[in-house]
């Protein structure tokens, strides 16, 4: 089999999934409106704090505002929940068909997860950023290279989000309901990614720990690229760190899915 024909099934699945995601245009529009509203609320809160003289971070007020808009745009890249369709597949046992296909189950689920994060993020973030830059004091990246680093950072963030999401979906093969992980994961991810509070505002000891974990690559790292806080040499090592996390989580997911398929029991006729 040539490399091209080996990759083709996964590309097809990716494209099909992306096409399906682009159908939810109304959802994207209303989602964007919600994001815009919450963005303004959060900016009001942070502005109040910073103006009261509580700022001990390295971020100025305009930078904070920009960071908050980046968070609002990237919200759909967060691996918050299990894929409802995969959950139904597992509950109803239709997951057997996934195993009856001559493809690697991990990569086919990974493609699905990637589309599920990438398409809604792109559909919401771009119009939201345009609106925020024009109307609500969002800054442009200071340099072209900062912009380029940001785009690379977002691509890596989406790849990482897909790896985490796939891992959560795989956990369904063990727990079936996935309710537990759906409650605990957003709490951890929101805090550790910088979604709740920019990591620069946290105490430095805590910040150091959080910047080793994978979650900071979802939001905090790309946002710092955007703000031009990180130079290219430093960026390279951060990209490397993210890549290592992506590979490690994917390897772990693939290991789990192989184990699960050995002990999986699909009940009933």
């Amino acid at each position: 089999m040539t490399p091209v024909s080996a990759v083709r099934p996964y590309l097809t699945l990716l494209v099909a999934r992306c096409r399906q995601e682009t159908q939810y245009r109304a959802a994207a529009l209303f989602g964007m409106a919600t994001q815009l509203f919450w963005g303004l609320v959060r900016i009001a809160i942070f502005t109040a704090f910073l103006k009261a003289g509580a700022n001990r971070s390295s971020m100025s007020l305009p930078q904070t505002v920009t960071y908050l808009w980046l968070v609002q745009g990237m919200i759909r890249a967060m691996p918050w929940s299990v894929d409802a369709e995969i959950r139904n597949l597992v509950r109803e046992g239709t997951v057997v068909y996934e195993l009856l296909r001559p493809i690697d189950l991990y990569f086919s689920w990974y493609m699905r997860a990637f589309a599920r994060h990438a398409i809604p993020t792109i559909m919401r973030a771009i119009p939201l950023f345009v609106a925020a830059v024009l109307l609500f004091h969002m800054q442009m990246p200071p340099t072209v290279s900062a912009g380029a680093l940001f785009v690379t950072g977002v691509v890596l963030a989406l790849l990482l989000a897909a790896a985490i999401s796939t891992l959560i979906n795989i956990s369904l093969l063990f727990t079936i309901s996935g309710d537990g992980i759906q409650r605990i994961l957003p709490a951890i991810a929101n805090f550790a990614s910088g979604l709740l509070i920019p990591l620069s505002f946290l105490p430095s000891a805590l910040r150091r720990v959080l910047r080793i974990l994978p979650f900071c690559s979802l939001i905090d790292t790309p946002a710092r690229f955007y703000l031009g806080q990180i130079g290219t040499p430093e960026a390279a090592s951060m990209f490397a760190q993210t890549l290592i996390w992506i590979l490690a989580l994917s390897w772990f997911g693939r290991f789990l899915i192989l184990r699960a398929s050995k002990r999986m029991v699909v009940q009933g006729g």
Binding site: M1, S5, P9, T12, L13, A16, Q20, R101, P102
Partner: peptide, 15 residues
């Protein structure tokens, strides 16, 4: 998906 789209997907999955 329409039936034919499923068929196309299967075509690619089974090469």
């Amino acid at each position: 998906l329409p039936v034919i789209d499923s068929f196309h997907l299967l075509r690619d999955i089974y090469s």
